[in-house]
Amino acid sequence: MSDAITYREAVIRALGDELEADERVVLIGEDVGAAGGVFKATEGLHARFGGVRVRDTPIAEQAIVGTVLGAAVSGLRPVGEIMFADFAGVCYDQIVNQMAKYRFQSGGQTTVPATLRMAGGGSLGFGAQHSQCVENWFLQTPGLKLCLPATPADAYTLLRAAIRDDDPVIVFEHKALYGIRGELRDDGLPIGAAEVVREGGDVTVVATQLMRHRAMEAAEQLAAEGVSCEVIDPRTIAPLDTATILTSVGHTGRLVCVQEAPAAGSWGQAVIATVAVAGFELLDAQPALIAADPIPVAYARTLEEATLPSVERIAAGIRSAIDA
């Protein structure tokens, strides 16, 4: 397989392949059916698989997630779409209290093969309630696996793996990435495996989604200045592949995390804390976290652009980590 497709098409392909492969897979969400989803990430699936398996729900996020959970423990492998990731707030109880804890509370009587997809991320001018990266809202909840695909290949691989996984998985799609193109390959990298996406010797840069792409641009600029970045995409933040990150820091001695969400209580802080505890002696300098400012994402372009880490801000952050 080596044809370039968009991230959006990769999502459709993953859903289609799983619906095809396993008749227990169903897809539910608001306008995911004939309309093909507001981000067009379910286009064609209703026509292919019919209204029993691909169905529109009312505007009712609690009902979507609760139904996915109930169906998952009753023989299906359901996928629920929460349109904008920000709306996870509406059904937070269903996700963190019900879905994440069902297996544990039952003493392991059943598995919960549930998948949720939701589109997050800023840079597009959607304002404070439609631009957030909400993955960190769930970091505190054992029982959930959290996937953050940055490329079409990972959108495909991780979503398929999520549907096949026997635990609840949330796949966070990024709105600003739906249109990017890349090769479709399923290299079998499982949930929980990071990928070294650029090799380098001076500094380890860990970044997800839109920030991975910006970090790669920054790495390119820095290469011209003689700084060699090793860029790692963790792909999933729960579970987190600390081994790959520690190995990298072992030969670079420096760590910079780049994320689109604000710093407090985030995966970037968790990575730094983990490396500080498990790999203190590997570090030649203090680690750095480049994150959004601790403010809501404004509608105005000038403000949003200043709030989210830019290529320039990332490059500057890496430079100061090198100089530290």
């Binding site: 709306f87 959607f126 304002g127 404070a128 309630q129 509608y299 000038t302 403000l303």
Partner: peptide, 25 residues
Amino acid sequence: AGRGGSMHLADLTVGAMGSFAVVGS
């Protein structure tokens, strides 16, 4: 002040308490 945009117009001086973009909120 440009923070809200089209989906969030509010003017408390005239009692327009807000435009809410999460359905039902």
